[in-house]
Write a protein that binds this DNA or RNA. Structure first.
Length: 341
DNA sequence: AACGCGTGGAG
DNA sequence: TCTCCAAGCGT
């Protein structure tokens, strides 16, 4: 099994910016492997590519990243989502720089901020050649199909991990891990797997039973409630905007945002500064666990910034997506007149 | 253990 | 429009 998969990988490995081709003499850079793995947590390759290029250009080494300012790293992460990753990325980089390099064992890696079972195993296997079992969503899907596991996730996870461990080879564990992930991304896909060209079709039980596309089963998710909120996009005559730095914990933690109401059924709201503001419309955005309708108020106002808020020049790219949507709407309205002067 | 935590693309 | 989902982690 693992032999056939490695042979397939040798011929079909995707070319990725953080990856060293199979059978190459080049050793992967642990920093780049770690950075890519953190960015790829619950995030597609397509979404990660530009961010990876920017981060490695600005901060080519873990020491450089460790020396970066928090606000710069958060601004560059904006739009990628799951912002706790960026906060933990910095904590981790500083811990690694302090100790003089990445640990080369799963136990050492696992102790670092933002590195869980998956990322620790992936870095240990890919960057350090250790025979660790790497289990991500792809591996779960491939194992569920190979062994026709009917039990739904997440209850079946321990069984899938055991199957994955039984198949992990001593040699080339990093290539093997990447091979399963490439297989899951290109052939053993969630919706319509290409079983006809799969290097693992011979031993695959789900394929034999004709139920590959139905596995892995998953326990149904809860419906998402709809919440309502109000934000104020306020611009001063000199072009500065009134912004807040959100607290480190919770939704959009550590990111820039527009001042406004809580988000709920019918939240109270009041402008943070007095002046002429008008409601310019609403934007919709879906988070992991709720839908949001955000009413956007905008205007040009001067005045002292209340506690917790500050006037600053704005690069819209530094905003998380929901806040950038509000900005984009406000920027097209006469109330803000961004283009007018 | 179950839930909170983003986003954009595919179907 | 809507649901699902993509190389998970922290609490």
């Amino acid at each position: 099994m693992s032999t056939a998969l490695l042979a397939w990988y040798d011929a079909n490995a995707r070319v990725l910016p953080w990856r060293v081709p199979p059978r190459s003499d080049e050793r992967p850079d642990p920093y780049r492997i770690w950075l890519s793995e953190v960015m790829l947590q619950q995030t597609t390759v397509a979404a990660v590519k530009d961010y990876f290029a920017t981060f490695t250009r600005l901060w080519p080494t873990v020491e450089a990243l460790a020396a970066a300012k928090d606000e710069d790293v958060m601004a560059r992460w904006a739009g990628l989502g799951y912002y706790a990753r960026a906060r933990n990325l910095l904590k981790c980089a500083r811990a690694v720089a302090e100790r003089g390099g990445f640990p080369d064992t799963v136990e050492g890696l696992r102790a670092l901020p933002g590195i869980g079972p998956y990322t620790a195993a992936a870095v240990a296997a890919i960057a350090f050649g250790r025979p660790e079992t790497v289990v991500d969503g792809n591996v779960e899907r491939v194992m569920a199909r190979l062994h026709a596991v009917q039990e739904p996730l997440p209850a079946s996870k321990p069984v899938l991990v055991a199957h994955a461990a039984a198949l992990t080879p001593e040699a080339r564990a990093g290539d093997y891990a990447q091979a399963v992930m490439d297989l899951g991304a290109t052939i053993c896909t969630p919706k319509s797997p290409a079983c006809g060209i799969c290097p693992c079709r011979a031993p695959c039980k789900a394929r034999a039973e004709g139920i590959a596309a139905e596995l892995p089963r998953k326990t149904p998710k809860k419906p998402k409630p709809v919440r309502l909120g109000h934000v104020f996009v306020i611009r001063r005559e000199d072009g500065a905007f009134l912004l807040e730095r959100r607290p480190d914990r919770g939704l959009l933690g550590g990111m820039l945002g527009w001042p406004g109401s809580d988000w709920g059924e019918a939240p109270e709201f009041a402008p943070p500064v007095a002046g002429a503001l008008e409601e310019v419309g609403e934007v919709r955005h879906t988070f992991t666990h709720f839908h949001l309708i955000l009413r956007v108020h905008a205007g040009r106002v001067d005045g002292a910034a209340p506690d917790g808020l500050g006037w600053q020049r704005l690069s819209p790219a530094a905003l998380p997506t929901v806040m950038r949507k509000a900005y984009d709407l406000a920027a097209t309205s006469p109330a803000l007149n961004v283009a007018g002067d």
